[in-house]
Design a protein around this nucleic acid. Structure first.
Length: 572
RNA sequence: GGGGCGGUAGUUCAGUUGGUUAGAACGCUGGCCUGUCAAGCCAGAGGUCGCGAGUUCGAGUCUCGUUCGCCCCGCCA
């Protein structure tokens, strides 16, 4: 049977007899005549039930209909009287004169009606009702479209969709794993994958050459509006490819997707990690903020009379500053100081700059040289904000973002940037080397040299408006280099053989050079749709406590289930 | 682990300085109604004020604890 799209019904269908199925959306009963809307995912059309017997005899039965009843209706399409055309809906020029209908299922009065404004608690408990709203339908359709475009794209380029295990091995570092106890090996656990990273590298060693997958990943960490415990990754890996090959492949897909969603996407800026940190205080620079970049003014104040700066510099701190254009009231300046303190700064220095004038409460402590250097560093008028405590660049970068947003300096549109060549390692709080991306990222330069700890990496992250859409790298494909990285990170031979032995084996028996990329699918969808929360593009998301109010998962299980798994709960 | 905001009718919310019987809108139920489309008009039903303790003659309101939801920091290679 032909499935008729409701929104495609127009005056051209006049006098045609059609049959439609869907939900009763809203009822307007005038006694003699009753109107209702029929809604399904393809749109909404007005139904007319006439009890006068002029059109049919079913008008009386229609009084039994209630909102959200599921019905099949038959009737003829009629043009509406001129003065009752509804411009708010695509089918507003026509209506369906119902000649007969059947109730496929009734519905109790609902906790809320599709499209009604409702809190998360109720919305998630009755998610199937929430999803009925046109907005949520649109979001689900968008995700489907996004995934279909992706599949078609990779498929055409000869990438194979190779599913990888959901039950796999826990790996050290990274996020906390979701664990699944084994029945056949009591006391042992699978982990759900945080990503298919290692398996896709194994597929390269297998000779698959071009792999992609749209797959679930699991990370047991605290939630945010852009983070769910399970999320979807668009994952790809290529053999014999350089960074530029992968970036190009990824970029072409991104362009295709943005175009399909009717968005303009300017070419991506290419930026080294170092520059991102120096100018934005972040590895996720937000290029949509129309305000001054960070500058290092440490040298200007190294020997200053202004002790707040000079003594901080003496302790090894850097002074980061930026100019925000526009006038700031005293209140706005005080607020900015408060913001800086909330971010963890000891304080914040502001200097009003208008023409040749520099005004601030401590201006008299600045020497002429210092003032001139500042004027040179920050051309234009506005307010210079400077901070010297803690990680001053990260902190001032964050403040820059806050002020720019508050003052409406965010530009419309999308501003993509490739952030490349992140350091291979950083020192963690214990002073040990830790991978900035992941330990399988290929270094730029000689990993066996004395400078190994400060090497950069063949990495590339795609950032749009300050949000990481995805990231990737060229991988290490030689076992001895991989071992060297583990050793630099202080992982013992026993440990890396136990945890990553299979990877080292794969790299030892003829693994081609390879690299890849992974997108956060939901984050991308949120961007494309202009939404705020990743929950809006996931059909059945979890609350911030990683709980599902709909199914009540996670939940306790029977003693018997636990016994079979060789498990006891802590309170037993 | 920490910070912030919130939980009152099915839903979204109001509720004063602690004081009589806790309100509104929408929804729901019944009635009226032949052109509405957020239909309208009339009538009605509907509340463990998240939960537990405390202060008080008296707690939706104050205190403590707890739980749930949202946002953020930590965390998320």
């Amino acid at each position: 049977m032909e499935a008729l799209s409701i929104n495609s019904i127009n005056a051209g269908y006049e006098n045609r007899d059609i049959e439609l199925s869907g939900w009763i959306d809203s009822i307007r009963d005038h006694g003699g005549v009753m109107f209702a809307d029929l809604r399904n995912r393809s749109g909404k059309i007005q139904l007319v039930f006439d009890s006068s017997g002029k059109d049919s005899g079913c008008g009386g039965d229609a009084a039994a209909l209630r909102a959200e009843f599921v019905v099949r209706v038959r009737g003829s399409v009629a043009r509406r009287p001129e003065d009752s055309v509804n411009k708010k809906i695509p089918t507003g020029e026509v209506e369906l004169k119902v000649s007969s209908f059947e109730i496929l299922n009734g519905a109790l009065p609902l906790p809320f009606y599709p499209g009604e404004k409702v809190g998360d608690e109720a919305a998630l408990k009755y998610r199937f009702l929430d999803l009925r709203s046109p907005d949520m339908m649109r979001n689900l359709e968008a995700v489907d479209r996004l995934m279909r475009i992706t599949r078609e794209y990779f498929s055409q380029l000869g990438f194979w969709d190779v599913p990888t295990p959901m039950l796999t091995k826990s790996t050290p570092e990274g996020a906390r794993d979701y664990l699944v106890p084994s029945r056949t090996k009591p006391g042992s656990f699978f982990a759900l994958p945080q990503s298919p990273q290692l398996f896709k590298q194994l597929l390269m060693a297998s000779g698959v050459e071009r792999y992609y997958q749209i797959t679930r990943c699991f990370r047991d960490e605290d939630l945010r509006s852009d983070r769910q415990p399970e999320f979807t990754q668009i994952d790809m890996e290529m053999s014999f490819a350089a960074s530029s090959d992968i970036m190009e492949t990824v970029w072409n897909l991104v362009e295709k997707i943005f175009t399909a969603f009717e968005h303009k996407l300017p070419p991506a800026v290419l930026m080294k990690y170092e520059e991102a940190m120096a100018s934005y205080g972040s590895d996720k620079p937000d290029m949509s903020l129309d305000t001054g970049l960070l500058a290092d003014i440490t040298e200007i104040f190294r020997k200053s009379e202004f002790k707040v700066f000079s003594s901080s510099v003496e302790k090894g701190n850097k002074i980061a500053a930026f100019l925000c254009r526009g006038d700031f009231s005293r209140k706005e300046l005080d607020d900015a100081v408060e913001d800086a303190k909330k971010l963890g700064a000891g304080g914040l220095v502001w200097i009003k700059k208008g023409g040749e004038e520099l005004k601030c409460p401590v201006a008299k402590l600045f020497s002429d040289d210092e003032k001139n250097a500042l004027k040179e560093k920050f051309p234009g008028d506005g307010v210079i904000f400077a901070g010297s405590t803690g990680d001053s660049f990260a902190l001032m970068g964050e403040l820059r973002k806050i002020l720019a947003l508050r003052r409406g300096l965010k530009k419309e549109g999308f501003f993509p940037v490739w952030v490349v060549e992140a350091p291979l390692f950083e020192k963690n709080s214990e002073g040990r080397l830790q991978a900035v991306h992941h330990p399988f990222t290929a270094p730029i330069g000689d990993i066996f040299s004395d400078e190994a700890a400060s090497l950069k990496s063949h990495s590339y992250d795609l950032v749009i408006n300050g949000e990481e859409i995805g990231g990737g790298s060229i991988r290490i494909h030689k076992a001895r280099e991989q071992i060297r990285v583990f050793e630099l990170m202080g992982i013992s031979g026993n440990e890396y053989r136990e945890k990553f032995g299979f990877l080292l084996d794969a790299l030892s028996y003829g693994c081609p050079p390879h690299g890849g990329f992974a997108f956060g699918m939901e984050r991308l969808a949120v961007k494309l749709l202009g939404l705020d929360s990743i929950k809006d593009v996931i059909a059945f998301p979890k609350t911030q406590n990683a709980f599902c109010p709909l199914t009540h998962a996670p939940d306790v299980v029977s003693k018997r289930q636990l016994r079979e798994l060789g498990l006891k709960t802590a309170d037993e």
